[in-house]
Design a protein around this nucleic acid. Structure first.
Lengths: 232, 232
DNA sequence: GTACTCAGGATTGTATACAATAAGCCCGTA
DNA sequence: TACGGGCTTATTGTATACAATCCTGAGTAC
């Protein structure tokens, strides 16, 4: 114990593979790779200037997180999410988040301070519109994660994060398409109000509406993108 | 070292790491390792007669699946689940399964054949009691997975499986303790009846009761085990 | 006696070498 | 031309070698 003062635990990446994972996730989410793109270990070794060991580890992680597809004894592919899978991801998200708001509305004691603080934040967001799309996306993610955190379930929060990470692939398409900031704000405030009023049914309904709207926006954005792709 | 190329590899597992993962998961679930047990790569290499590469891969998988804990640059530990984490896992399971039965009750068309078949199965189970605990545990798992499958969400099913895999650590304690077969059967039949009657609220309530009972049984089993451990 | 320093050993992180597997191509045959 | 066998090559799976990191404990200064 009593580690030296100079032992600064830099919060950088402890390992090469972690760094590769975040970089690749970022690139994939930004559609820098075409879907079904074939990724070989050697290629990534050259790109990152490291050996196969960390690259392999990174690819395994990406595979379990659903960003690439692994076939035994063959290469990896950047995963092509189909509409079915997006539906499923949104449904899981719905299941988890409905549960969260219900729990929050039913029990009052812990977490309601965070909810009240969140409400103040979003009230000011509503008044201070507009902002950059990017900033709003960040706030939106933070909103949903704060709720899960207030519910006190770290496991659930982790799962939610993993889902949202993958959905980011498509939310990015949507964000670039239109800003619906006002609507989002109102929905978020409604959810928070219901929770504070301990109206769990209302909170569930409001959350459902919020998520379904996101789902629909993403779905139509994808269909648009596909239609455009085929018409050209 | 120099594992003479006696390639009597069973073709069951495509890779060594997969085989190691299933073996270790099994051993951990059966409490063959004390919690917090320190697992080193070298030790597993000797145990399985392979090199570090597949062992490392297996440990990564076990870590992401929540069976061992990894610390950077240090060894791995067999994970010690605390009561808090078990609560969280049960809550996530609750969230997912409540969503599943609600969906199933709300929409009639697909899946209801499976539900009806499941109901027949469990009716016969109720009549044909008793069976071996082991068999009942298998049927119980199958019950919940069939529901998720009937809902048509493979992503959700995968997550549920992962959760139940971890909870198996504690359900094994409980299974050995008592058989509550009749109660389980009745609860399952109630859930299925509500679904077929398209009563989503009833189905949710019944499912909640079923899961909460499992949770309570596990909790008290753990407390008993801890109390016994400390009293000796 | 306490706290600090600094070797030494143990263990993981990374790089590379070798083996096994799967895909592609050439070529021969009907 | 169509088809199939076997070689070649690209790529992953596995083993091992080397580097970096962390824990331990003896030794020393105060």
């Amino acid at each position: 114990m009593a580690p030296k003062a100079g032992r600064s635990r830099t919060r950088e990446f402890s390992s090469l593979s972690a760094s590769i994972v975040t970089t690749l996730k970022d690139q994939i989410v930004q559609w820098r790779y075409p879907p079904e793109y074939r990724m070989t270990e050697a290629e990534l070794c050259k790109q990152f200037g490291v050996s196969r060991s960390p690259v392999r580890e990174a690819l395994r992680i990406l595979a379990t997180d659903g960003f690439v597809q692994r076939m035994p004894n063959r290469s990896y592919r950047v995963k092509q999410h189909n509409l079915q899978e997006i539906e499923e991801l949104y449904d899981v998200r719905l299941a988890l988040e409905l549960f969260v708001v219900e729990q929050l509305a039913n029990r009052s004691a812990p977490g309601h301070d965070d909810i009240a603080a969140l409400k103040r934040t979003w009230t000011s967001v509503l008044n201070g519109l507009p902002r950059k799309d990017e900033e709003l996306a960040r706030l939106d993610t933070q909103f949903h994660e704060t709720l899960a955190l207030a519910a006190g379930n770290k496991t659930l929060l982790r799962q939610l994060r993993a889902i949202n990470e993958r959905l980011m692939l498509f939310r990015i398409i949507d964000f670039a398409k239109a800003h619906r900031a006002t609507s989002t704000c109102r929905q978020h405030l409604a959810i928070l109000t219901f929770i504070l009023a301990k109206n769990s049914a209302g909170a569930r309904k409001a959350m459902q509406k919020n998520i379904e709207e996101g789902r629909n926006n993403v779905q139509s954005a994808i269909k648009d993108a596909l239609a455009r792709a085929y018409s050209l």
